[in-house]
Amino acid sequence: MRTPSTSPTRLHIDWTRCQGRGLCTELLPRLLGRDVWGYPIARDGSREPAVSPSALSEARTAVDLCPRLALSLITDVTRGPGNRKAGTSL
Protein backbone atom coordinates (compact mmCIF):
# COMPACT_ATOMS: atom_id res chain seq x y z
CA MET A 1 0.00 0.00 0.00
CA ARG A 2 1.53 3.28 -1.08
CA THR A 3 0.76 6.03 1.39
CA PRO A 4 2.71 9.19 0.54
CA SER A 5 4.31 10.53 3.69
CA THR A 6 3.15 14.06 2.91
CA SER A 7 -0.60 13.53 2.74
CA PRO A 8 -2.23 12.01 5.83
CA THR A 9 -4.75 9.23 5.48
CA ARG A 10 -8.23 10.32 6.46
CA LEU A 11 -11.25 8.32 7.51
CA HIS A 12 -14.30 9.10 5.38
CA ILE A 13 -17.73 8.22 6.76
CA ASP A 14 -20.55 7.73 4.28
CA TRP A 15 -23.31 9.13 6.47
CA THR A 16 -26.02 7.90 4.13
CA ARG A 17 -24.93 4.34 4.93
CA CYS A 18 -23.85 4.67 8.57
CA GLN A 19 -26.29 3.26 11.10
CA GLY A 20 -24.16 3.88 14.15
CA ARG A 21 -23.46 0.22 14.87
CA GLY A 22 -20.32 1.28 16.71
CA LEU A 23 -17.73 -1.18 15.46
CA CYS A 24 -15.45 1.62 14.31
CA THR A 25 -15.73 3.43 17.63
CA GLU A 26 -14.45 0.26 19.34
CA LEU A 27 -11.56 -0.22 16.95
CA LEU A 28 -10.54 3.45 16.86
CA PRO A 29 -11.36 4.76 20.35
CA ARG A 30 -8.84 7.61 20.21
CA LEU A 31 -10.16 8.81 16.87
CA LEU A 32 -13.89 8.39 17.36
CA GLY A 33 -16.35 8.84 20.16
CA ARG A 34 -20.04 8.07 20.05
CA ASP A 35 -22.86 10.60 20.15
CA VAL A 36 -26.18 10.26 21.99
CA TRP A 37 -27.72 8.36 19.09
CA GLY A 38 -24.79 5.96 18.68
CA TYR A 39 -23.19 7.52 15.61
CA PRO A 40 -19.41 7.97 15.46
CA ILE A 41 -18.13 11.47 16.17
CA ALA A 42 -14.60 12.59 15.36
CA ARG A 43 -12.80 13.60 18.52
CA ASP A 44 -10.87 16.29 16.66
CA GLY A 45 -14.10 17.82 15.37
CA SER A 46 -13.17 17.41 11.70
CA ARG A 47 -15.35 15.99 8.92
CA GLU A 48 -12.71 13.43 7.99
CA PRO A 49 -10.41 12.72 10.94
CA ALA A 50 -6.77 12.02 10.11
CA VAL A 51 -5.64 8.49 10.90
CA SER A 52 -2.21 8.25 12.51
CA PRO A 53 0.14 5.61 11.08
CA SER A 54 -0.10 3.59 14.29
CA ALA A 55 -3.87 3.35 13.93
CA LEU A 56 -3.81 2.56 10.23
CA SER A 57 -4.14 -1.19 10.67
CA GLU A 58 -7.18 -0.84 12.96
CA ALA A 59 -8.62 1.66 10.53
CA ARG A 60 -8.37 -0.86 7.70
CA THR A 61 -10.06 -3.47 9.89
CA ALA A 62 -12.83 -1.00 10.63
CA VAL A 63 -13.30 -0.30 6.91
CA ASP A 64 -13.47 -4.03 6.26
CA LEU A 65 -15.75 -4.97 9.15
CA CYS A 66 -18.25 -2.11 9.01
CA PRO A 67 -21.52 -3.96 8.35
CA ARG A 68 -22.82 -1.03 6.34
CA LEU A 69 -19.68 -0.52 4.23
CA ALA A 70 -19.84 3.09 5.37
CA LEU A 71 -16.11 3.66 5.85
CA SER A 72 -13.29 4.34 3.46
CA LEU A 73 -9.76 5.64 3.75
CA ILE A 74 -8.88 8.67 1.69
CA THR A 75 -5.60 10.32 0.81
CA ASP A 76 -5.15 13.37 -1.38
CA VAL A 77 -3.83 10.98 -3.99
CA THR A 78 -7.15 9.14 -4.25
CA ARG A 79 -8.91 12.46 -4.46
CA GLY A 80 -6.72 14.13 -7.08
CA PRO A 81 -7.64 14.88 -10.69
CA GLY A 82 -7.45 11.87 -12.94
CA ASN A 83 -8.74 9.50 -10.30
CA ARG A 84 -12.41 9.06 -10.99
CA LYS A 85 -13.23 6.20 -8.69
CA ALA A 86 -15.17 7.52 -5.75
CA GLY A 87 -14.51 6.07 -2.35
CA THR A 88 -11.36 4.19 -3.17
CA SER A 89 -10.36 2.43 0.00
CA LEU A 90 -6.79 1.59 0.86
Binding site: D14, W15, S72, T78, R84, K85, A86, T88
Partner: peptide, 16 residues
Protein backbone atom coordinates in the same frame (compact mmCIF):
# COMPACT_ATOMS: atom_id res chain seq x y z
CA UNK B 1 -31.48 13.78 -2.66
CA UNK B 2 -27.82 14.38 -1.81
CA UNK B 3 -25.39 11.58 -2.15
CA UNK B 4 -22.16 10.87 -0.33
CA UNK B 5 -19.11 11.99 -2.28
CA UNK B 6 -15.41 11.40 -1.96
CA UNK B 7 -14.47 13.18 -5.19
CA UNK B 8 -15.89 16.48 -6.52
CA UNK B 9 -18.48 16.45 -9.34
CA UNK B 10 -16.01 18.06 -11.70
CA UNK B 11 -14.14 14.75 -11.64
CA UNK B 12 -16.96 12.27 -11.19
CA UNK B 13 -20.58 13.34 -11.41
CA UNK B 14 -23.43 12.15 -13.61
CA UNK B 15 -22.77 8.42 -14.10
CA UNK B 16 -19.12 8.94 -13.27
Amino acid sequence: LPRDRTVPSSISGVRG
